[in-house]
Amino acid sequence: MIVRTLTDVIGTEHDVDTPTWSSRRLLLKKDGVGFSLHDTVIKAGTETEIWYKNHIEAVYCIEGRGEIEVVGEGTVYPIEPGTLYVLDGHEKHLLRGATQMRMICVFNPPCTGTEVHDEEGTYPIID
């Protein structure tokens, strides 16, 4: 059994902060459960271009408001508490935080815990 708290992660190498988001990685590849679980804060007034070409990501909003725009389609979906979206087609997207948003994110394959987006907005596969 794995028991971990957000407090256990905050301030460690698995608490990754960037100009547009902060991600506290609670479950990682090394935990061996087949996915990673992240408690992520999207900063108010920001826009982040993301393309998870190596991962499937499911995101559940528990706090705040914003939107996600599918790049190339122009389709925009509002995000508010209770909204789930899944990037099951590896969609390149723009994530915008109108207010600070708190998101619970699941990645498959699992992340190692220190990833940040590269120049394409992608997390690399790390063995």
Results as ranks from 00 to 15, higher is better:
118 D>M: 01
42 I>D: 01
102 R>S: 09
92 K>V: 08
117 H>W: 13
110 P>M: 01
39 D>A: 13
90 H>Q: 10
87 L>R: 10
120 E>F: 03
36 S>F: 08
23 S>L: 10
68 I>F: 12
110 P>I: 03
105 C>M: 05
76 V>C: 00
85 Y>H: 13
72 G>D: 00
14 H>C: 02
91 E>Y: 14
106 V>Q: 08
55 H>M: 07
89 G>K: 14
52 Y>P: 00
37 L>F: 15
68 I>N: 03
2 I>A: 04
57 E>W: 09
79 I>P: 12
8 D>M: 04
12 T>S: 14
107 F>I: 02
67 E>R: 03
36 S>M: 06
33 V>A: 01
117 H>F: 15
43 K>R: 15
102 R>A: 02
125 I>G: 08
82 G>K: 12
14 H>G: 06
28 L>W: 12
93 H>L: 00
92 K>P: 13
16 V>R: 02
95 L>P: 13
3 V>D: 10
70 V>K: 11
68 I>V: 15
23 S>V: 14
22 S>I: 01
50 I>M: 13
10 I>F: 13
10 I>H: 12
87 L>Q: 04
21 W>V: 15
38 H>C: 14
6 L>M: 02
61 C>A: 08
38 H>M: 11
88 D>R: 12
8 D>E: 01
16 V>E: 04
4 R>P: 10
3 V>R: 14
62 I>W: 03
66 G>D: 05
107 F>E: 01
90 H>P: 11
122 T>Q: 10
50 I>T: 12
120 E>V: 02
43 K>E: 09
6 L>E: 07
54 N>C: 07
80 E>F: 10
100 Q>R: 09
56 I>L: 12
65 R>W: 06
28 L>Q: 14
57 E>K: 09
32 G>M: 14
82 G>C: 13
73 E>K: 11
83 T>H: 01
123 Y>T: 14
104 I>T: 11
16 V>A: 02
119 E>V: 09
116 V>Y: 01
90 H>F: 10
51 W>Y: 10
83 T>R: 06
13 E>D: 13
79 I>N: 06
56 I>A: 06
17 D>V: 15
86 V>D: 01
61 C>V: 14
82 G>A: 11
11 G>F: 07
119 E>T: 05
74 G>I: 02
106 V>D: 01
15 D>H: 02
84 L>W: 12
103 M>C: 08
51 W>F: 13
123 Y>I: 06
78 P>C: 04
81 P>A: 07
41 V>L: 10
12 T>K: 11
115 E>A: 09
90 H>W: 10
85 Y>P: 00
16 V>S: 03
54 N>F: 08
51 W>S: 08
88 D>E: 10
62 I>P: 05
45 G>I: 05
25 R>E: 03
7 T>H: 09
96 R>H: 00
36 S>E: 02
34 G>C: 10
51 W>H: 15
110 P>A: 06
9 V>N: 07
8 D>R: 09
38 H>E: 10
73 E>R: 11
19 P>K: 02
36 S>D: 03
63 E>T: 07
106 V>P: 01
84 L>S: 13
97 G>D: 07
9 V>R: 04
47 E>N: 06
106 V>T: 14
61 C>T: 10
91 E>C: 10
